[in-house]
Amino acid sequence: MAKHLSGRRPPRIGDAPKFRRALIGIVLFFVAVVVIAPLAVIASHAFSKGLPYFTAAIAEPDTRHAIMLTVLTALIAVPINTAFGIAAAWAITKHDFPGRRLLLIVIEIPFSISPIVAGVSYLFVYGLQGLFGPVLEAAELKIMFALPGIVLASMFVTAPFVARELIPLMQAQGRDLEEAATSLGASGWRTFFTVTLPNIKWALLYGVVLCNSRVMGEFGAVSVVSGNIRGQTNTLPLHIELLYHDYDAVGAFAAASILATLAVITLVVKVALERQGAGRRSRPASLAGNDSLSEVKP
């Protein structure tokens, strides 16, 4: 970038005060309409009948069950996806093997696929009409319309979340440090925990936080495989739909306010982690796109 000898930045295009103010005004207006209003409407409806009514809505047994099921799903799906993301990043960035690019593309597939298509696909594997349907029925194993199906569908939609944060970073960091550690006699695990992990911890946490946010909020894929049984296989997003269609607006928005709070916390943590250098946005554009798992986070 050129430095200006005068020290003062000359006006660039679009810097005319009138234009500047108008554009900021228009953009902020749309941000208020599109982004802030939905948050405000959730809060306003959740508390429209007062705090006691809100707490009663949250404490309602089916809502409590939905919260527990959502947390349980995340507790299973997020750690497994994290292990997968680390394994994939280690294999792809620290080694050479044929088919690496293909593997990258496969890992990225869930981002491009509609959650509904994901849910329908899982039904054709584990459902009664599916590939394993007859076998599972004979063994009396219930995967669809039960917790395993919900967890599997959640793992599909979030499979790339951790991997795509780690791969570009570990690619950029190279292999020198790990090679030095192993040449000094460190084992593979020791090399990973003492050399690699400290270098990727913020990016790892970043991926985990986004993965968790998506697992807890997933609607389309889970709605196909869960069967929507009230008090049994209803996750929080599905329960919101149910309450909403029951014309229980306060209940629906009270439940929604939990997920909206989670979303806001996720954004705050995300910004904090970006300050630590995590996330693609803290890398310059010219570095950001050095492989297919790059550019933006869908």
Binding site: V31, V35, I36, A37, P38, L39, V41, I42, S213, M216, G217, E218, F219, G220, P237, L238, I240, E241, Y244, A252, F253, A256, L259, A260, A263, V264, T266, L267, K270, K297, P298
Partner: peptide, 16 residues
Amino acid sequence: LVDLPFALPTAVAGIS
């Protein structure tokens, strides 16, 4: 806030 649409669950966005 630009990332809110990615963070906010779609069902929540839908009802609001």
